[in-house]
């Protein structure tokens, strides 16, 4: 087996995003949901790196990757803080308990 590096990175991107989405579809745990979002965004970061490499424009890719990481951290922090508050109010991190709003 002699795969080119960009192809391996692409596989990594797909598997990261795939794992993340799989997790979002099947987990019932709030913390895992936030982790799943992180996984997907890590895939995004890798995708930018890959794209920068393909286009010989690594510096721009780097800038964008860092920006994404910053924004994503903020989202994760908010998500976790919401999770903490939800745990305090409902005593559970189960998504099933978090489906009062429907229909």
């Amino acid at each position: 087996m002699n795969l080119p590096i960009p192809f391996i990175v692409l596989l990594a991107v797909i598997s990261l995003a795939g794992t993340g989405f799989y997790c979002l579809l099947f987990t019932r745990n709030l913390i895992k949901v936030v982790v799943a979002l992180q996984l997907i965004v890590k895939g995004v970061v890798l995708a930018f790196v890959l794209a920068g490499h393909l286009q010989q424009n690594e510096s721009l890719a780097q800038t964008m990757a860092i920006t994404v990481i910053v924004a994503d951290t903020i989202v994760a922090v908010i998500g976790l803080s919401l999770a903490v508050q939800i745990r305090q109010h409902t005593g559970s991190l189960d998504l099933k308990a978090l489906s009062k709003l429907k229909r």
Binding site: L50, A51, G52, V68
Partner: peptide, 13 residues
């Protein structure tokens, strides 16, 4: 937002 970013990455690539 992540899907948008994937899209941007694709166009950037």
């Amino acid at each position: 937002s992540a899907l948008v970013l994937f899209g941007i990455a694709a166009i950037f690539a």
